[in-house]
């Protein structure tokens, strides 16, 4: 029995009358790694932001681990009550394009603060988790550093550690390497690959085609607010769909 962690049904979202997401349905099972690719403005990031509730969706249903977070009533989206939502939010984490670390906190504090403040974890436990994560991500010597003292790649790895410290079931990545130069991109992609090897469930919006191909169980190609094509990396990279071929061709050359 495969466990569905994320279920999106008929999601739609408009900004000032512009429909950015049109009737998207998507479900992600435990242990699955799903990459979302597509041209800029195709709605990839908006989809992620709606799924993580940073944007309010206009229509459709959203549920995590079978718990309804958002549903439609009389043509309007209803969000779960606060207490329930707090529980639902614990099931996912999000890694941002530009890290969004807390600059006034050390690396260690960035990682332990949320578990202690919002997760009710003891300081001892939080520190133990953080030390393990830092070792895993090759950042043990940076625990006392402040974000501004780190390279972009290191900052992004800290932000991944910060998200993992809350032990989410699903981790979303919103273009995690777009703010990094190629050299630093590699070290972040390596970390994501290691997570995939541990069967972390991940949904990754990315422009790194080769990476998506190597890593993903499924690739989703989005354009103009809809899922144009989806399938295994092989299916997508050998797709007969003209737009998919065009888009991927651009990146392979």
């Amino acid at each position: 029995m495969e466990n569905v962690l994320l279920q999106i049904e008929h999601m739609s979202k408009s900004f000032d009358g512009m429909e950015v997401i049109k009737d998207i349905s998507l479900s992600v099972k435990e242990g699955e790694v799903v990459s979302i690719i597509g041209p800029s403005g195709s709605g990839k990031s908006t989809l992620l932001r709606c799924a993580t509730m940073l944007e309010k969706m206009d229509g459709g249903n959203l549920s995590y681990l079978g718990e309804s977070a958002v549903w439609e009533e009389d043509g309007k989206c209803v969000y779960a009550p606060k207490a329930q939502m707090k529980e639902i939010q614990k099931s996912f984490g999000l890694v941002f394009q530009n890290f969004n670390l807390f600059p006034h906190y050390s690396v260690m504090k960035n990682i332990i603060d949320a578990p202690m403040v919002t997760g009710g974890v003891s300081k001892k436990e939080a520190v133990a988790r953080a030390e393990k994560l830092l070792a895993q991500l090759g950042l043990s010597d940076k625990a006392d550093a402040y974000p501004y003292q780190l390279s972009g790649g290191q900052q992004q790895r800290v932000s991944i550690a910060r998200a993992l410290a809350l032990q989410p079931k699903i981790l979303f990545f919103d273009e995690p390497t777009s703010a990094l130069d190629p050299e630093l991109t590699g070290e972040v992609l390596k970390v994501i690959k290691e997570l995939a090897a541990e069967h972390m469930t991940m949904i990754i919006v990315t422009h790194e085609m080769q990476f998506a191909r190597e890593l993903s169980d499924r690739i989703i190609f989005m354009e103009q607010g809809i899922i144009q094509a989806q399938g295994t990396p092989e299916e997508i990279f050998n797709s007969s769909n003209e737009r998919v071929g065009e888009f991927i061709g651009k990146f392979q050359s």
Binding site: T52, M53, L54, K86, Q89, K90, F92, G93, L94, F96, N98, N100, L101, F102, P103, H104, D113, A114, V117, T118, G119, R162, A163, L166
Partner: peptide, 26 residues
């Protein structure tokens, strides 16, 4: 930056925790 609020929200901080722990010191 709005990213500070968004990061705090995803990490589960409520509004007052976000303000007093993350925003106000900066």
């Amino acid at each position: 930056a709005v990213g500070q609020y968004e990061a705090a929200k995803v990490l589960g901080y409520n509004k007052s925790q976000t303000f007093f722990r993350i925003i106000l010191p900066q």
